[in-house]
Design a protein around this nucleic acid. Sequence first.
DNA 1: TTTTATTTGATACAGGTGTATTGTTTATCC
DNA 2: GGATAAACAATACACCTGTATCAAATAAAA
Lengths: 183, 183
Amino acid sequence: MIAEAMWRVILDKGMEGATVRNIAEEAGLSLGALRHYFRTQDDLLVYAMTLVQERATARIEQVARQALPPKEMVLAVLYEIVPLNAETRAEMEVWFAFIAYVNHRKDELPIPDDGVLEGVRKVLAYLEVSRLLSEGLDIDLEVERLYGLMDGIAIHALLQPNRLDADRVRRTIRYHIESICKK
Amino acid sequence: MIAEAMWRVILDKGMEGATVRNIAEEAGLSLGALRHYFRTQDDLLVYAMTLVQERATARIEQVARQALPPKEMVLAVLYEIVPLNAETRAEMEVWFAFIAYVNHRKDELPIPDDGVLEGVRKVLAYLEVSRLLSEGLDIDLEVERLYGLMDGIAIHALLQPNRLDADRVRRTIRYHIESICKK
DNA sequence: TTTTATTTGATACAGGTGTATTGTTTATCC
DNA sequence: GGATAAACAATACACCTGTATCAAATAAAA
């Protein structure tokens, strides 16, 4: 609840606007009440960040549990990693702000893992055991490549939504997956 | 000179630490002197941001002018886009901080273009006229894919330098280029 | 050298910042 | 019921923020 308030403030005013007073007001609390739950601003930050990550992970795992043909399931999972609708878009926007902020405070704050790298590993392993992958691929580099592609597309879709719309995002991802699968 | 001071402050204390006082001190100026050159903080921000972009562009264009075999030249250019040494790493770190900050002030501040998309277009067009590209590629989607890959790898190299070192970055990029070129 | 413009410095202002303190309300338990 | 603890609110503190003001120093031009 308080974390959601922090997300809304970040979406609205950015990281600079994410002050304890703004967050308290957005959550309908007084300064003292907010402080009762989070003794310091960093505590709140870490909590809100963890929650974004958990929410995204839960969403992706739910998609992964759907009964679909292998390639379709893989694509469905990859589509969840990237901002294709208002919800995932907001999520990614907040996540991006968090990462950028936490990046220059590595010593004090933990840099959380978004789990995308591990997800990409599983996805490629699944295509492999399904005998869908082309022969002669370097799986290790394929992981690195898909991982980079996914986060790159995610950021581009976030920063340039007009140029890179949802359909173009899907086509690019599908194009890449097709390129590493048997004809 | 003042812009460089701002970069150093951002590298050291992040965007939150990039206050007019910190920047003035780093530049060896008084508050009034700094204000004489930049009436407002946003003016300084836009100036410093433009300078990073121009510096990176100049560096990349210089590499592109080298006389090298087509594929080697293409790789050399792509390597410049990504943080592989301390200099380009610092540059990218500052750029990342700028973009994240400016992202939630779209209405007030201009979001500068880093020129990577245009560079990727040129690079692929060059491979095409050099008759190095495989047959049957969708050039439009290949641009989107390489564009995403480059920025994705750049961010990963920035945020996870231990896992993704310079050699692994080069191998991944080379692997991708080889995958779209004739055998 | 005197006049003009540029550059610099010190200080002030109004407002925002995270955190601390202290008290009051509300709920929970025996 | 009364006691104990949790939840909340108001206020205060010391500090930092961007910007403005105004005077002094330096340089350039006449």
